[in-house]
Design a protein around this nucleic acid. Structure first.
Lengths: 245, 245
DNA sequence: CGCCAACTTGATGGCTGTCAAGTCAGGTGG
DNA sequence: CCACCTGACTTGACAGCCATCAAGTTGGCG
């Protein structure tokens, strides 16, 4: 409890975006060499997080965005009465912290779900450089817009899908994101608990567990603890956007 | 049906942001006169929409953001199987179209719920001017960030609140937004149908109707068709963030 | 080895969806 | 001016999905 912040290992490294393997995910394409040099100065800090570490907490003042270099994170919102809701899961190449820009205070907690690594992007510096790099400004707008669209998708999921559909949509989404990062689309390890999945999907953990069992019985997936294998992608996909009956 | 697009009245006006009554909502504060002059060139088009008119549709290519000058809009997402979900309601001073930035195509439909007026903000021009006006760039970032935070709030609402809580939260939110625009916080006209409220809140229209009746019986609000009067704000607020039992 | 968190599975109940019938308000046409 | 019509809304009866409560299992870790 007390050592939460201390457990975060802060390293100063010459982190070079221009040669980063995640560049296609993080950075705008089509930058000239001189542009890239400017961007390289942006990220001077890398940060390691252990499982359970907070990147930031709701209410803390906002200074930087964080790009996931490796690992897995969740963001959660806490209500006054103690309920909390997972608002997203972030993996390599995705950004944390955009919620803080509007008010100067972070609106949610960000927690590492496994040992992870982040690039720290000081936001004032990012805004400064964006003024000189139209492509970087555009990129920033696009990233935020995509986050808005993603959130609308989750609203649709929570507002109009039934439990099985939600879980199917969640698995399809995870599969696609792993696939885009060069991992298997059909087999992966869940980094989050059933409860966290449930919170994200607006379901209780028992319901999530039951649905995993049901999908397994039906031969659509195979579940062994945190390991999920998708055995019938098409049937899984067809479960999404299925009318109630 | 056929005349949908034609019904939208497009007017070229000398629309001056610097003297607009909504400036505090739309524009960054603290701009110098020369800055304001630049911004004034941005909005050269105003657009009137009649009730039911589309501002844009999902799939259409994205060119501009739209600032609501007067009136009321909804944005909706349509799934392949025909279900649609209201993702937001927008009123004076709020922006439409940010969903299109990321992909260059609009991701949702935007529809006027009453006769309304919009300012058209060509996005390429906005990005261009933002490069010269740090305050405008910052403003853009803040607006998008706030939209993300708002969406997370809706995710929380949909994922962890029960029906009565959702409607209470919705009414409190509407009340605050009307109040911020100089209208009564305690009495207002709903511009949307019960079905649209239900869609936004992840409920069926019958449930919304029943909840209105229930809240009225309890003396918290008074409902007469589309006219809502909040008679006990504190009790309404206390319904939000209430544990199930 | 023992503990604990995470998970699974069963039984039960309640919230909200579904179906249905009826009311109300506003607009249209005779 | 009024009858009619339609979309929006209300209300009731019933059902089903998922939450809740409970008990037991598993795997990981000190």
């Amino acid at each position: 409890m007390a050592g939460g912040a201390m457990a975060i290992n802060v390293e100063r490294l010459k982190t070079v975006c221009s040669s980063c393997s995640l560049r296609e995910l993080c950075m705008p394409v089509g930058l000239s060499q001189t542009d890239l040099d400017k961007v390289d100065g942006l990220v001077q800090l890398r940060r390691s997080s252990k499982r359970g570490d907070h990147v930031f907490r709701a209410g803390e003042s906002f200074h930087a965005l964080y790009a996931v270099r490796a690992g897995f994170f969740k963001t959660t919102l806490l209500t006054e009465d103690g309920r909390d809701q997972v608002t997203g899961f972030q993996m390599a190449g995705e950004l944390l912290g955009m919620d803080g820009i509007g008010t100067g205070k972070h609106a949610c907690d960000a927690v590492a779900l496994e040992d992870s690594e982040l690039c720290v992007i000081p936001f004032p510096k990012l805004e400064e450089i964006s003024l000189e790099l139209p492509a970087l400004q555009q990129h920033m707008h696009r990233v935020m817009s995509r986050e808005i669209v993603r959130d609308h998708g989750v609203m649709m999921l929570l507002g109009s899908m039934r439990a099985e559909e939600r879980l199917a949509a969640f698995l399809v989404n995870l599969s696609q994101r792993y696939s885009a990062r060069g991992f298997s689309a059909n087999e992966f390890i869940l980094r989050m608990t059933r409860e966290e999945i449930g919170s994200y999907l607006g379901l209780k953990l028992e319901t999530v567990s039951r649905l995993f069992s049901k999908l397994q019985e039906e031969g659509v997936i195979s579940v062994n603890q945190k390991r999920v294998t998708i055995t019938a992608v098409e049937r899984l996909r067809s479960l999404v956007n299925q009318r109630p009956c």
